[in-house]
Simulated assay, not measured.
Amino acid sequence: MSGGRSSGSRNKRRQISDEERAAAVEDYRESVGRLQHTAYRNLRQTIAYATIFVAVVATWMLVIGQATPTSFPWYAVSILGGAFGLATYFVREPRPRLYVLAVAVVLAVVGVTGMFLTD
């Protein structure tokens, strides 16, 4: 009437060899590595998209005549930041791509801050 379970079955574990354990650990590490690589790539792409979006908005504001002579340099800096954000897709090496992305973020933040302070 116990449903087929013995009282001590909860504590019994399947015995595995050291090779199986090492293979399982290696599979786990590879899975986590792929997940981290994908997450970092998605984060870099999202940041690049954000700088490009800021550049598109700044360009649109210039086209509709929203920029004043005092705010024009800040719009130009934002557009330059978007250009660097777009350049991250053409740089293949990981370290220089990170530097280009950092420059894009700094320029976009400086440009948006300048736009808000001058308006």
Rank of each mutant, 00 (worst) to 15 (best):
M1D: 07
S2F: 11
S2I: 13
S2H: 10
R5W: 14
R5L: 15
S6L: 15
S6E: 15
S9L: 05
S9F: 00
R10A: 14
K12D: 08
R13M: 14
R14I: 04
I16S: 09
E19V: 14
E20A: 10
E20G: 00
A23R: 11
A24M: 06
V25A: 03
E26P: 00
R29W: 05
V32P: 02
G33L: 07
R34C: 00
R34P: 03
L35K: 05
L35M: 10
Q36A: 03
T38M: 04
A39W: 04
Y40W: 05
Y40K: 00
N42M: 06
L43V: 05
R44Y: 05
T46G: 15
T46A: 15
I47L: 12
I47A: 01
A48G: 10
Y49R: 06
A50V: 13
T51A: 10
F53Y: 06
F53L: 11
F53H: 05
V56P: 06
V56I: 15
V56S: 06
V57W: 08
V57K: 08
V57C: 07
T59D: 09
M61G: 00
L62E: 14
V63T: 10
V63G: 10
I64A: 10
G65N: 08
G65T: 10
G65V: 06
Q66G: 06
Q66F: 14
T68Q: 05
P69H: 08
P69K: 10
P69R: 11
P69C: 12
F72A: 13
F72T: 14
P73Y: 03
P73Q: 01
Y75I: 01
Y75N: 06
Y75C: 01
V77M: 12
V77Y: 08
S78N: 02
S78I: 12
I79M: 07
L80E: 00
L80V: 08
G82V: 03
A83R: 01
A83Q: 03
F84I: 05
F84D: 01
G85S: 09
A87P: 03
T88A: 09
F90Y: 09
F90G: 10
F90E: 04
F90A: 12
V91W: 07
V91F: 08
V91L: 07
R92G: 05
R92N: 11
R92Q: 11
E93W: 09
E93G: 04
P94G: 01
R95W: 06
P96H: 11
R97S: 00
L98G: 12
L98D: 13
Y99W: 14
V100Y: 02
A102N: 02
A104H: 05
V106E: 07
L107C: 03
V109E: 12
V109T: 13
T113C: 06
T113L: 10
G114I: 09
M115L: 15
M115C: 06
F116C: 12
L117Y: 09
T118F: 13
